[in-house]
């Protein structure tokens, strides 16, 4: 049985990962630590595990691994502490807010000989896995272009605080697609152009929409919309979509388009009830298996760094109004 703890419930994905751990037969959520004690106590109560207020004490409770779902800027310190305690780590995306932080995290985990994974569950969406199979089998031939979106509702709270999030929608909603494209196409990003800004949600300091254009090492050209442009009245949280233009055909992907249209007088607005498989389960199952077999998680910290390099360059491009080359560090 793999004993996993969760560090911080600042990010709402913590709840999904906790549910996954409870659903896996060979894993157990054993403890929760949170720098906001009330939030930690509430989640511990919800998942019927111990809340441990002292971080060092929490890391010494006989855990095998931790999942870190704190505010983005706090990832580094928590990863370093967990690595020093000899624990395997699954870190929420973006892996960090600066390239230096991401590199330091990777170095700390290398030094401690523990695995560090990045939470990119998109690789475990059945439709995405199907697309990967088709591309690998050559069904599309050469991939010429790809037009993508990762739109979402405004998450609020610390997500729009640059001091805690390190960026806005461009940061939050570029990394999933950047990682998925690297994985699907086996190419690295070489340049990015980005226009972004705070154009939709009033009273926040970060950008809430970004329009990106990217080039990849194999010649594929990419556009992407990273946004919090879905209003509260929208029937779901958002989307991940891709239109892939290939030599042999076109593949349109709307990764979460497995839903019912639900019209409930109680909800007033229309809602989409997702019935597809939970991609988080694949991500967490791989992590638990990695811990048990002392192997690196399939989606690595380097994958997290590569996606972060795209967003870092995107913000520089938006500042300069110029296309910026992406140098792999």
């Amino acid at each position: 049985m793999t004993r996993v703890g969760i560090m911080s419930f600042a990010h709402m994905h913590a709840f999904a990962y906790a549910d996954c751990l409870r659903g896996l037969p060979d894993a157990e959520l054993t403890a929760i630590w949170d720098d906001e004690a009330d939030r930690g106590r509430d989640s511990a109560k919800q998942f019927e595990v111990d809340f441990i207020e002292d971080q060092a004490g929490f890391l010494a409770t006989g855990l095998d691994a931790v999942i870190i779902t704190s505010e983005n800027v706090k990832h580094r310190t928590m990863v370093e502490n967990a690595a020093n305690a000899g624990l395997w780590i699954l870190c929420e995306k973006p892996i960090a807010t600066t390239i230096d932080d991401a590199k330091a995290m990777i170095a700390a985990c290398d030094a401690a000989a523990v695995g560090l994974g990045t939470a990119f569950p998109c690789r475990y969406i059945p439709s995405m896995m199907d697309v990967k199979k088709r591309i690998d089998a050559g069904e599309l031939g050469d991939i010429y272009a790809c037009s993508c979106t990762n739109n979402g509702q405004f998450p609020g709270g610390w997500f729009a605080d640059p001091a805690l999030a390190g960026g806005g929608a461009t940061m939050d909603h570029t990394v999933h697609v950047a990682d998925a494209l690297r994985w699907l196409l086996g190419q690295e990003f070489t340049s990015v152009y980005c226009e972004n800004g705070n154009l939709l949600r009033e009273g926040i300091e970060t950008d809430d929409v970004g329009s990106l254009h990217l080039e990849m090492s194999g010649g594929t050209m990419v556009s992407h919309v990273a946004s919090w442009n879905r209003p509260a009245s929208f029937p779901t949280w958002g989307d991940v979509t891709m239109e892939i233009i290939g030599e042999k055909g076109v593949l349109a992907v709307d990764a979460f388009n497995q839903k019912l249209d639900v019209y409930s007088d109680e909800a007033v607005k229309a809602e989409w009830a997702y019935w597809g498989d939970d991609c988080n389960l694949g991500l967490v199952a791989d992590f638990v298996d990695a811990v048990a077999n002392k192997r690196p998680p399939t989606v690595s910290a380097l994958d997290g760094l590569r996606a972060l390099e795209v967003t870092t360059a995107a913000y520089e491009s938006a500042r300069l109004h110029q296309s910026v080359s992406i140098d792999l560090s």
Partner: peptide
């Protein structure tokens, strides 16, 4: 830019 007589434009 391809071997096909196609075009695809992405603009911001």
């Amino acid at each position: 830019k391809t071997s096909l007589l196609i075009d695809y434009v992405l603009a911001t």
